[in-house]
């Protein structure tokens, strides 16, 4: 009996705190349906006086969010694919093969985690220009994929190092080479870690700002949502409700990705660290 009461109390607490927790989002969504004037003065009341859907039309059409949305999707997908592939391969090599120089590579990667990254975007821009990739969507993807993805590499390495040796051996017995073993036997077991890496990289790239901003200078039609959000802010004038609508639009895909993959998410991290 005691546990039943406890359970109910737990649920009540979780729901009450949960509502407070997501209140800012309710507020954001309700703001996206208000007018700029009532947004500032309605105080505690979250309910808009009438539903101003034109905020969404304004964001989608005038502020060009339809284009930015597709750009964001493409850039994020491209980056996620590259980053997850690279760190998965590196992680496998580090976690599975005791090649000469392995220790050195691991120490280097560990040290990289704490090296401060650049504080100016200028060298990155110059470099992309040098490669002939500035003002193209490839340039943005490549720049977003740059850096050492220490966390992912370590996650993958830790996960792969825990796979029983027998799996590889039996695969080898069936005539699989190194590649065959990796793709047919090992990779399918790594789903949780892959999902984790996808979610986290997705979140980072989706909200990344400075890199896409500077690398799409001459080509505003290549901007992303996070960059486009700024077009609502002016020195003398700000369109808060348009911005709230924009924020709601750009939040949707991330939530969907999280809900789809959250099943694997925790499993992914714990599977590697165990």
């Amino acid at each position: 009996m005691n546990t039943k009461v406890g359970k109910i109390i737990t649920h009540v607490c979780l729901i009450v705190i949960g509502i407070v927790w997501i209140y800012p989002f309710i507020w954001m969504i309700s703001s996206s349906l208000k007018t700029n004037k009532t947004y500032l003065t309605s105080g505690i009341n979250p309910i808009p006086e009438k539903l101003n859907w034109e905020n969404y039309t304004r964001a989608w059409e005038v502020a060009n969010f339809s284009t930015y949305f597709i750009n964001s999707v493409l850039i994020t997908l491209g980056t996620v694919i590259i980053v997850v592939t690279l760190s998965c391969l590196t992680g496998y090599a580090l976690g599975r093969v005791d090649f000469p120089g392995r220790k050195v590579v691991i120490v280097c990667i560990g040290a990289l985690m704490f090296i401060p990254s650049g504080y100016t975007i200028i060298p990155l821009y110059q470099f992309m220009k040098f490669l002939g990739l500035s003002n193209s969507i490839y340039g943005v993807i490549l720049a977003e994929s740059s850096g050492a993805h220490v966390l992912f590499i370590l996650l993958f390495a830790a996960f792969f190092s825990r796979i029983p040796k027998e799996m590889e051996e039996s695969a080898a017995m069936d005539g699989c080479g190194f590649l065959g073993t990796f793709f047919r036997v090992i990779l399918p077991t790594a789903k949780p870690v892959i999902a984790t890496a996808i979610i986290m990289q997705f979140i980072w790239t989706w909200s990344s700002f400075l890199v896409p901003l500077v690398l799409t200078l001459n080509n505003p039609e290549l901007r992303t949502l996070a960059v486009g959000m700024l077009s609502f802010v002016g020195k003398y004038q700000t369109d808060w409700t348009g911005m709230a609508a924009g924020a709601t639009i750009s939040l949707l895909p991330v939530i969907i990705v999280f809900i789809l993959m959250q099943r694997y998410f925790i499993e992914g991290i714990s599977g590697s660290v165990k």
């Binding site: 590259i82 592939t85 690279l86 760190s87 391969l89 590196t90 496998y92 090599a93 580090l94 599975r96 093969v97 090649f99 392995r102 590579v105 090296i115 401060p116 990254s117 650049g118 504080y119 100016t120 200028i122 060298p123 990155l124 470099f127 490549l142 720049a143 994929s145 740059s146 850096g147 050492a148 993805h149 590499i153």
Partner: peptide, 23 residues
């Protein structure tokens, strides 16, 4: 193993090192 590490290596040294050093 070296082939697996190579792409990450190239991306890192090709794209990230220069900006970091410059700052």
């Amino acid at each position: 193993a070296y082939i697996f590490i190579l792409p990450q290596f190239i991306v890192f040294f090709g794209l990230s090192l220069y900006p970091i050093i410059m700052s």
